[in-house]
Design a protein around this nucleic acid. Structure first.
Lengths: 228, 228
DNA sequence: ATCCTGTGTTGAACACGTTCAAGTTATGCC
DNA sequence: GGCATAACTTGAACGTGTTCAACACAGGAT
């Protein structure tokens, strides 16, 4: 058998990641210290920095894993589902399902939102490929729907933004099981799909034309829409 | 003359604020240390914490001042302007005018976006009154336009969100004089005002009705729309 | 067997934001 | 003026994330 052998380093990394998340879940991101995590993983304090460039990077690594899990889940659930509204619901709700027990430390991902040059900035260059990847799921979800070229370029980005907003709202949501977030998502998705149906009407299309063009131009200029 | 006398403390506070911003502007938020700022203001290191609960709070105090300035500017410019598109443009662009030289440290305001309980969280309870105040400017800007009650409640919040997005985009915008942000804002405002004109048509109104109601319900539940 | 190189690992040291007990100064009251 | 209290100021100390020179060790080349 071709069993995959983890190198020593990979095992240590995985251990630090695991123990780190464990402590973040228990105590929250701030309260769990690097020293605690290292101790819990039975390595020296500095070892963490051989594998992760910062404390937040541990959460980022977690989120990378979330993305992989999410993609697999979406591919599984979306198979054979042809209704647009359902497909979009699957993408967003399955993401929230994955994140649901980790709202406590998820906020750390937003820490560098306002710092364009930080490697972990949500909108920065360092996370561009992950954004593209995530938007790709939405691109696939709308693949079969008939819309203008402009919308086909804009929508994945817009939906990704919405999904980001949903995650934020999710973090703040104190309602039981975060039902409010689910309802909000459903409401917005209803609107979006109904709106998309309307765009088949020429009146609406000409109404939106100049706006779409302008938005596309600006976002492309700004390097937002070059996703593969 | 009834000259306003600043107490000793108020002068120190003002000095720390002034020197702090000076250093943030020069070096950026991270690079400027509390020790540097204190030294520059000729006080002890700890003095800062008598006036500001944290380093970020200095930026927050700056932003409070920005809000005051902004409100004054808007009241001045909006007088006699009856066109909705123009009024909205005034509100957002004058804000960007005020912020334009401070993009370097403005990002600090977004540091706690993902932490609901932090006093400086953008969406948290600690900043609720400021959100309400800021949204109030938009409420006034749309005061004379004829729209449904639901829209009148939703719009100030939606516009405030847009304006927040504009500030974020502004921070990331590397184009000369941040022209991209200005163009984006103009494009979105064009769309919004044209859309609002459309809502006078009954077709559109019935289309949006259920969505508006749902949104209002969720946002009110979540404590977002209780603004004075 | 010995050396060499790359991969891991260590823990002390650093700089930073923040706290706080101890002081000092201003202010209102008699 | 003298006193009491509140307002303000100090700087050492704490805990934190992070860095780094030094060390350990595997395993391939000679």
């Amino acid at each position: 058998m071709n069993a995959i052998k983890k190198s020593v380093g990979e095992k240590t990394r995985a251990l630090i990641l695991e123990k780190g998340l464990e402590m973040f879940r228990e105590a929250g991101f701030e309260a769990a210290t690097i020293r605690d995590i290292a101790k819990s993983a039975k390595v020296a304090t500095g070892a963490t920095y051989y594998y992760f460039p910062s404390k937040e990077a541990i959460v980022a690594a977690y989120y990378d894993h979330v993305q992989v899990t999410h993609e697999a889940k979406v591919r599984e659930l979306i198979l054979g589902e042809t209704d647009l509204r359902e497909r979009l619901g699957i993408v967003i709700h399955s993401k929230l399902d994955i994140l649901k027990d980790d709202r406590k430390f998820l906020g750390a991902l937003f820490r560098y939102t306002g710092e364009p040059d930080h490697p972990l900035s949500v909108f920065g260059k360092g996370t561009k490929s992950q954004r593209a990847h995530s938007a790709g799921l939405f691109r696939e979800a709308i693949a079969d729907v008939e819309i203008t070229d402009e919308l086909r370029q804009l929508l994945p980005w817009a939906l990704w933004m919405m999904h980001l907003g949903a995650i934020l709202f999710f973090i703040y949501d104190e309602s039981a099981e975060q039902r409010r977030t689910r309802a909000l998502v459903n409401g917005v998705l209803d609107l979006v799909t109904q709106f998309l149906k309307l765009t088949s009407a020429p009146v609406i299309r000409t109404f939106l034309q100049p706006f779409q063009g302008k938005m596309l131009g600006i976002l492309k200029e700004a390097g937002w829409l070059l996703e593969s």
